[in-house]
Simulated assay, not measured.
Amino acid sequence: MKPIKSLIILLLIVVTNYSCTSDSNSDGNDFVDLEAYVALDVPYGDDESQTYDIYLPAHRDEDTKTLILVHGGGWTSGDKNDMNGFIQLIQADLTDVAILNMNYRLVDEATQAYPTQINDITAVVNQLNANLDTYQISSDFGFIGTSAGAHLAMLWSYAFNNSDQAKMVCSIVGPTNFTDPEYLENTSSDTLLLLTQLYGLDLTTEFLETVSPYHQVTEDAPPTILFYGGKDPLVPVTQGSALQTKLQELGVMHEYTLYPEEGHGWAGLELLDTWSKLKGFINENLL
């Protein structure tokens, strides 16, 4: 699902450059003056892929919220650097927000998609919780995910948010329901082929429901904002519209935007519209 990268790159046109600097006193104690601070490739596990970048704003305190970014790439590829456009947007327009941009273990012959990648999100959340005092931030956070990363962010928020720390989740062209006939009844579907590669040839309905945010969402789900393209060759329109309907039935706060002429990513006025709506949603539900 690599076309989403163009969306992230084009986001750069709507922000100005922003830089963060770290601060340390002579004793090596960071955050003394609560200046802006950046730490790159922070390990959260033993695998080389288990790292994150963290960006802490100046003048933060125990009420400072964090946005966790989850990149796409079809569960088999991609990198946290693909989300750098969002970092610049957030730093320019949401100056009081901390940002955690994570990598996770990618699927290969030795690594299964589920529960490995969900476990990685849990490990990141656990490490963030263990460092709240060090980072001087709140335990509340929100997710922004793109494509496969949006699927993971929604699945974690709906099925693994046991301590109610995730206060909002954003899906940009994220798959939501792997039992959708648009997938299962379309033998030429690239996603159906990908599912067999990710989870094996013997896919049961029960398992596909387990890994589908649509089937895991409950009335306790955090507020959710959804963006989809009407001509997406990878993610059928029904992936967003069906979840939107279910969120409405459950009474979950949500917003849904469909760009009828767009695919797996977009630019121009639609791009500006996406960020405007997402920024407003973050302000309303996280900050």
Results as ranks from 00 to 15, higher is better:
Thr95Gln: 15
Glu62Asn: 11
Leu69Arg: 08
Val97Asn: 07
Gly78Met: 07
His59Ser: 13
Ala92Arg: 13
Ile99Met: 10
Ile87Arg: 14
Phe86Ala: 03
Glu62Cys: 08
Lys65Phe: 02
His71Tyr: 05
Pro115Asp: 03
Leu106Gly: 06
His59Gly: 12
Gly74Ser: 12
Phe86Asn: 12
Thr64Ile: 04
Gly72His: 05
Ile90Gly: 06
Tyr104Leu: 08
Leu67Cys: 03
Ser77Ala: 15
Trp75Glu: 08
Lys65His: 02
Asp79Thr: 09
Ala113Thr: 12
Val70His: 09
Leu106Glu: 08
His59Asn: 15
Asp63Met: 11
Asp93Thr: 14
Ala113Ser: 14
Ala58Asn: 02
Tyr104Asn: 04
Asp96Glu: 13
Asn81Ala: 14
Asp96Leu: 03
Ile118Gln: 15
Met83Lys: 03
Pro115Ser: 11
Leu100Thr: 06
Leu67Phe: 01
Gly74Asn: 04
Phe86Ser: 07
Ala110Gly: 12
Asn103Met: 09
Ser77His: 09
Thr95Glu: 14
Thr95Lys: 15
Asn103Pro: 01
Thr64His: 02
His71Asn: 03
Asn103Gly: 05
Val70Ile: 14
Ile99Pro: 02
Ala92Cys: 13
Ile99Gly: 04
Thr122Phe: 00
Asp79Glu: 12
Lys80Phe: 05
Thr66Asp: 01
Ser77Gln: 10
Asp93Trp: 00
Gly85Pro: 03
Lys65Pro: 12
Arg105His: 04
Gln117Glu: 13
Asn119Asp: 15
Leu89Glu: 13
Asp82Phe: 05
Gln112Ser: 14
Asn119Val: 01
Asp82Glu: 03
Thr116Asp: 06
Thr116Arg: 09
Thr111Arg: 13
Val107Cys: 07
Lys80Glu: 04
Thr95Pro: 09
Asp108Trp: 05
Leu89Phe: 13
Gly72Pro: 02
Met102Ile: 11
Asp120His: 06
Leu69Tyr: 07
Leu69Pro: 06
Asn119Gly: 13
Arg60Val: 09
Asn119Leu: 10
Ala110His: 14
Ala98Pro: 01
Arg105Pro: 05
Arg60Phe: 02
Asp93Arg: 15
Asp120Ser: 02
Ala110Ser: 14
Ile90Arg: 05
Val70Gln: 13
Trp75Lys: 06
